[in-house]
Design a protein around this nucleic acid. Structure first.
Lengths: 162, 162
DNA sequence: CGCTAATCATTAGCAGTGCTACGCATCTCC
DNA sequence: GGAGATGCGTAGCACTGCTAATGATTAGCG
């Protein structure tokens, strides 16, 4: 019957030990985890037609990098090289990128967008943000400001390493 | 060689038309989409051992609901009923939930946690938040406060309907 | 009452996206 | 020149979402 999502609190608010994060209790973290998982899933599903979210993300990186190796691409996208290998293969199959052999190191193949790939990037530019924009639009100005204020922090949380 | 992730700006900062969200331009939305996708992916992968993220999420709902139908569970988790059917089947196979026939409507089967399922929930309670906690812990107090301040807004964005 | 509709769950099959293990080609360094 | 490192690719697995179709049961209407 419930149509809306809700944090699945199963008693996390009880301080069951140390509090590792000053200012944030277990319940906060559980809620944050929940909302990030759900929003991530929605975003993956609400993307533009014709290209998968993973492909689009990789294509964007290729577009901004100009020319890039599979390995660097994998590192930027935070996936393993074989995974990126397959992603690029799919992009190439659809004619959005092309592979050119590196002149100085014949092991590497450089990836760059085709004209068609650039056009695709242009086409989906607004579309891929539409879902998020619509959800942002119905927030109050204060709420929106809070989300934008958290953006740098979230990006900081994404960085690898200690 | 870049080892860190970065927003894949492909020129989104150019105002290519209307600005549908007051106070947030296309570049903000792109960054937000990027960070949400990545964090969602990391969270899905950094969960506790022995249970998949999807299973854990569903198990938590069952645990807090006490007894619930597959359909309601699917609605709460925002997946289609067949998907939830399979998730529950896996949970049952591992002995974490059990299905009991509804007395008044023999079409529905009610799902509830077993003792073993409750123990599993208890076991992974801290573990499943560990990744997020570690990332939060290395933020500055101000950054952390910003993330927590955005939490209600993010939850608001998750709600369905217009 | 009896037939038809709707509802709940499930099965079957597909797609997307991540992983590890392994192999091949190539480069680097001694 | 040969050993090990490096870059990419293939093969195969796992997880998780979907739609279409089926079966069982219930609810509603004439």
């Amino acid at each position: 019957m419930p149509a809306t999502t809700r944090p699945t609190s199963t008693g996390d608010s009880r301080p069951s030990g140390a509090r590792p994060v000053p200012g944030a209790d277990e319940d906060d973290i559980t809620r944050l985890r929940f909302v990030l998982l759900r929003l991530g899933r929605r975003l993956r599903h609400e993307g533009p037609e014709g290209i998968t979210p993973t492909q689009l993300s990789a294509l964007s990186v290729v577009g901004s990098a100009g020319s890039i190796t599979i390995g660097d691409l994998a590192a930027i996208e935070a996936v393993q090289p074989p995974t990126m290998s397959r992603i690029v293969a799919a992009l190439e199959l659809d004619g959005w990128v092309e592979r050119v052999a590196d002149r100085s190191d014949r092991r590497v193949s450089l990836v760059r967008t085709t004209v068609k790939g650039e056009e695709e990037l242009e086409r989906v530019r607004a579309e891929r943000n539409a879902f998020l924009a619509s959800r942002l639009a119905r927030l109050t100005p204060d709420e929106r400001a809070a989300v934008l204020a958290a953006l740098p922090s979230l990006e900081h949380m994404l960085q690898e390493g200690e």
